[in-house]
């Protein structure tokens, strides 16, 4: 049972942890603030920015004007949702098989799938680049959807597998006894029961795909560039750009930050492959 903790002790903890948490969060907070300043004000001393400058939303408009921001935003959206959706479609049957009809090899197959995730992307950069060039899918959203689907597939399969395993096999057998075909069993029983797990799988993989910054940078130019690549274009800027960079960044990370906060718990499970519970 909970112990009695003195109020002063609790206050010290709160202050210490709060300060650390705030420090970690500060860069994010800071770009939110800068994104509402004018370019001239954004480079002033921090105290002056906080105390003596007005607020404006002009940077958000400027970002769109500089380069078609919403095109990149929709690229990110399509690529991360598309790759996750495709991955789920392939992973659900695979995870069903491994969780409910385990064979001797199942564990090895699962481990092998995970091992493909350990392959350093740079090790296969050249062949993928050349294959994509020859297929004409360099700098296309299709190409990125395929690559991101493949690199996240092991994680999707793994996460679904661990969620499916928590569903008692007897319930699926009951459905079979009740006259359900395999398809009906999956649609009416497995999927509805696994919805929370599937939702967090989708969430985590959308996050991973959204933030992926190796393939998205190397396989795109102007056309299919998602936000990771678009933001990278600020590394060689012209003129003052702090406020615009902040505005672009805020829009790029806000949706993912919100999703991420919802998926804290699943994050541990998904990224440690169940090694930490």
């Amino acid at each position: 049972m909970a112990r009695n903790v003195t109020t002063s002790r609790k206050s010290i903890n709160t202050i210490a942890a709060g300060a650390l948490g705030f420090l970690m969060f500060f860069p994010v907070l800071w770009i939110v603030i800068l994104s509402f300043k004018t370019e001239g004000n954004a480079i002033k001393a921090p105290l002056e920015i906080l105390l003596n400058t007005g607020w404006t939303t002009e940077s958000y408009g400027a970002v769109q004007a500089r380069s078609n921001y919403f095109k990149h935003f929709s690229n990110s959206l399509i690529i991360s949702l598309g790759s996750t959706f495709l991955g789920m479609l392939i992973a659900i049957p695979a995870a069903w098989s491994m969780a409910f009809v385990p064979a001797k090899r199942t564990k090895n197959v699962l481990m092998w799938m995970l091992s493909t995730k350990m392959l350093p992307p740079v090790g296969v950069l050249i062949p993928i680049y050349l294959i994509f060039r020859d297929l004409g899918i360099l700098d296309t959203r299709t190409g990125l959807v395929i690559v991101l689907m493949l690199i996240n597939l092991p994680i999707i399969v793994w996460m679904l597998y661990t969620y499916f395993r928590e569903i008692p096999g007897e319930i699926l057998e009951a459905a079979r006894m009740d006259g359900a075909s395999l398809r009906e069993e999956v649609i009416h029983v497995l999927v509805p029961m696994a919805i929370p797990g599937m939702a967090s799988t989708v969430l985590l993989n959308v996050i991973l795909a959204w933030n992926e910054a190796f393939w998205t940078l190397n396989l795109t130019a102007a056309k299919a560039a998602p936000l990771t690549a678009f933001i990278a274009s600020y590394s060689s800027p012209e003129g003052l750009f702090y406020a615009k960079l902040s505005a672009a960044s805020v829009m790029a990370i806000a949706p993912i930050l919100i999703m991420g906060w919802f998926s804290q718990k699943q994050l541990v499970r998904g990224l440690t492959f169940g090694a930490v519970k």
């Binding site: 008692p168 007897e170 319930i171 057998e173 009951a174 459905a175 079979r176 006894m177 009740d178 006259g179 359900a180 075909s181 009416h188 029983v189 509805p192 029961m193 919805i195």
Partner: peptide, 28 residues
């Protein structure tokens, strides 16, 4: 199993947790 015309009651009952009692009974 679906074609054998048998019904089974499992040790864990194996009820569908996402369905109401009515829909559980209606499922077969």
């Amino acid at each position: 199993p679906a074609k054998r015309g048998l019904a089974m009651v499992f040790q864990s009952y194996a009820l569908y947790p996402h369905m109401s009692v009515r829909r559980n009974i209606a499922f077969p």
